[in-house]
């Protein structure tokens, strides 16, 4: 049996996790202009909240929801309590990056101080595999793909068909103009942190469901592919991040199948560099910009 089709199927699972994380990350940057490098650590925090829920005997999907709620609340609190005061004091992009790295370290080591530097697993992850033609998935993986698809559809509906979505896009494009046009940008930014934090939390939990064993550093180690997805699609572009996730997820699995497992991460980054050479602002940035102007 050829490995090509199964690899594409497995790539879709990876893409689903990357899409959840990448869309949250890019949405947050698009609206707030903060490159939040503590994102991976918040994913880990959500995973540990899910672990707490799972240890009480609840369903793993309830644990996923709890992780999402934690991500949303923590992100809003983080923005209000830490990031906003720095911005008010005039801290610029590079300074904010350092602040977010510091937050990432504080969160990671706080988790480590509470839980210890060890490996943890959510319970209830064992499920029979389902074979669909050449594709083979576990039920958990099908759930992850379904969650990823559902979240992407929800983000699409939010951005395209709701007043809030339009306000978010307006804030992302020009916050001052949006404010002058009557958009409550502070509230919009809060909601953007909540949505992106929620996606971050969901991504953190489904990531550790897929890797099965995790540490206080697991989310942080996943940050580079998330940034790659966001940059590939055009930073700040939710649809670009979705497309970027598909490209990175599928090409890395194809590289493992056709070249060598050792090169699965490398190939995805080679594609990233190649795309950025041709389209420096990412795949969808110019298309999105043109649409914003037309709208």
């Amino acid at each position: 049996m050829s490995l090509l089709l199964p690899a594409i199927g497995f790539g879709v699972v990876t893409a689903s996790i990357l899409a959840l994380a990448g869309v949250g990350f890019t949405l947050q940057f698009g609206v707030t202009n903060i490159l939040n490098l503590s994102y991976g650590s918040i994913m880990t925090g959500a995973a540990f909240v899910a672990l707490l829920v799972s240890q009480q005997g609840f369903s793993v999907w309830l644990a996923v929801a709890a992780g999402g709620v934690f991500g949303a609340i923590f992100s809003v609190a983080l923005n209000r309590g830490v990031y906003t005061p720095f911005i008010r004091r005039g801290t610029r992009l590079f300074g904010m990056i350092i602040v977010t790295i510091s937050v990432a370290l504080v969160v990671q080591y706080a988790i480590q101080a509470i839980w210890g530097a060890s490996f943890f697993s959510l319970s209830g992850l064992h499920s029979p595999s389902i074979h669909l033609g050449d594709f083979a998935f576990t039920q958990i993986q099908l759930g992850i793909v379904g969650l990823g698809l559902g979240a992407m559809v929800a983000v699409h509906l939010l951005l395209r068909f709701t007043t809030l979505g339009k306000a978010m896009r307006a804030t992302a494009t020009n916050p001052e103009l949006a404010r002058n046009c009557g958009v409550a940008t502070d509230r919009v930014i809060d909601i953007a942190w909540a949505i992106s934090g929620g996606l971050c939390g969901l991504a953190g939990v489904v990531l550790v469901m897929n890797v099965t064993a995790f540490t206080p550093a697991t989310g942080g180690e996943f940050l580079i592919p998330i940034i790659a997805v966001a940059v590939l699609g055009g930073i700040g572009q939710a649809y670009g991040a979705m497309l970027g996730a598909l490209i990175v997820g599928i090409t890395s699995e194809l590289a493992a199948a056709l070249i060598s497992p050792d090169y699965k991460d490398v190939v995805a980054f080679v594609i990233l560099i190649a795309v950025l050479l041709v389209r420096p602002k990412g795949i969808l940035s110019e298309i999105a910009a043109a649409k914003e102007v037309a709208a």
Partner: peptide, 9 residues
């Protein structure tokens, strides 16, 4: 995050 392709191989 996954080794399914490697496992299949």
């Amino acid at each position: 995050s996954s080794y399914e392709t490697e496992v299949e191989q």
